[in-house]
Every structure is written in C-alpha cells, then in structure tokens.
Write a protein that binds this DNA or RNA. Structure first.
Ligand SMILES: [Zn+2]
Ligand SMILES: [Zn+2]
Ligand SMILES: [Zn+2]
Ligand SMILES: [Zn+2]
Lengths: 131, 131
DNA sequence: TTGAAAATGTTATATTATAACACTGTTACA
DNA sequence: TGTAACAGTGTTATAATATAACATTTTCAA
C-alpha cells in the first residue's frame, strides 16, 4: 500500500523532508528539535509522523540505534523486508539493496510453523575508512 | 571468547538465572523488580549485568522489543550472529538455530567494502496458534 | 451535508538507559 | 607482602526514548 508523498499530511511531510535531507539516521528528539521552527512542538507530533512514515515504508527505524532513516529504495514495497549495514567505527548506516539477499530472506521458512511476513536485518562491521 | 558461568559475578549470576528461568524475553525493569529481593536495587546494577551477559553471548537483546532473552544455543560462539522469530500475535520469541541461514548470513558480502563481523536478524509473523 | 476517520495540539507521564562517584573485591606480580 | 590495575558493586540523580489521554480540527467520501 505504497502512498505517494502528495498524500502525506503536513506534519508527515515536514518530518520526512527533514529526514530525507539528512541521509543518515536521526534520533526522534533531534528531529523534534529541528522541526520546532516548523511548528511541531511536542514529541507526540514527531512520533506520530514517524509511526505513519515507517508504516508506509518511507522511513525505516534502525532498531539497534533508536534512529530513523529515509528509505533509499525508490520502490517502497519492500518496507517489510529491510536490511542495513552499520559501521561500528563511524556509525555510517546504509540500506542494503540486494535482490539475492532479500529473495533468500523473504523465502525463508523453518519447521516452526511460523508464517513470516516481515524481517529486519542489521549487519555490523567496519567500513573501508574505519579499518 | 565464551565464558563459563562459574566465572560470572554475583549480580551477573542473579540476572542470568532469572532470565534463564523465564524462557521468554524480559524487560530490564521487570528483571529489576524481580531481583530486588536478591539485593539488586537500582537500574545500573541490572543494566551492567545485562551488558556483560550480552557481551559474552549468554543473553541476547531483542532490539525491536527492548527485551532480553537467554541464549538457547549451548554453543555461545555464535553470539555475533543472532536470528529470532517473533510472533506479532502472542509475542512469542524463539531463537532461530539454522546452520544454512547462519552460514549464508555470516558469509554475506556486498560491494560496499564493509567487513561484517556481526548481524542480528528479526523475523516477524504469526505462529500456528495465532493464525 | 454530515459523519467517520485521520490528523493535530497539548500536557503530563511512562519507560528505557546512562552519568557520575565512592567504595570493594580480586588478581598479578614487583 | 605491598601495591597497582582492573572488574565489580552500591547509590543517587538524570538523560533519553516513547506513549497515554483528551480536546479539537481537518479531510473526504457516502
Ligand atoms: Zn527501504
Ligand atoms: Zn566507518
Ligand atoms: Zn544465542
Ligand atoms: Zn503467536
């Protein structure tokens, strides 16, 4: 159910706008601080926008960092299948876009009887510069 | 660098003991509440024990839930390669032990120049009962 | 038009986690 | 045996992350 940006509400646009300009994960309260000039004064306004943006796949949450990053895949239908590369040195986070990986994981099944419809994968390591 | 339980400190033993008996993820403050009778009265005592237990692989953190669960793999050398199955219905969390999956992910490389040494994967879905 | 759903604004509070500092135990080895 | 290094402990306070609750407004399709 990908939603076009034109359909976003005012607060959702403001928050997405700021996150997209950042091209790095942002903390909710850092977003809040930075959009106060735009009229969003309280945490719930930011968290509600984030919740919706995450729901529609425009934004992903980096769970290990409690931070939010804009989706870099033009096609948002894979918001239920996310993979990230995280450098423990410089904290750089990149969304992995690897068809083989996503195909492998989307098709993953075990004998537990679980029916999976979503996954989130976070890889950690060191980037070139940090080695 | 797997560490034997005998090497654990008093607080670490108390916390691990409680988590192991739970066979489900526990929140830090729920652990704190439950070990107060054992003398751990303040958050840092629990968080410090958790930090160490996570570090040595005895406990894993379920990032999407801010909860902690005992490692079910007798062999703790894979604490840098974790995968979980999470039911969105009943919240049941199971550590996935699947050699093919872990081999695939441990060997994963992309052309970004990142050298990975750790990953965490969380699958979401519905278990048999919750479907 | 009107009513349901979504979004907003606001205050207060809950939940999760760490900083800082004084003190204690354990280990190694000069 | 002294003593230095280090890990662990106890404690208070506070930082950081997130949601509850409720009144109001906007949107938009039936
Ligand atoms: Zn994405
Ligand atoms: Zn780096
Ligand atoms: Zn494990
Ligand atoms: Zn279930």
């Amino acid at each position: 159910m990908a939603q076009k940006q034109e359909n976003l509400s005012k607060n959702q646009k403001i928050v997405l706008d700021f996150i997209e300009k950042a091209n790095q994960p942002l903390k909710a309260y850092s977003i809040l601080f930075n959009v106060q000039k735009k009229g969003l004064k309280a945490p719930p306004q930011v968290y509600r926008a984030l919740d919706r943006l995450v729901e529609i796949g425009k934004v992903h949450k980096i769970e290990s960092k409690n931070a939010f990053v804009a989706c870099k895949n033009s096609n948002c239908t894979i918001s239920n299948a996310t993979a990230f590369s995280i450098c423990d040195g410089c904290e750089k986070v990149t969304e992995i876009s690897n068809p083989k990986l996503s195909k492998y994981l989307s098709g993953f099944q075990d004998n537990s009887g679980m029916k999976y419809n979503k996954y989130n994968l976070e890889f950690f390591g060191l980037c070139k510069k940090c080695r």
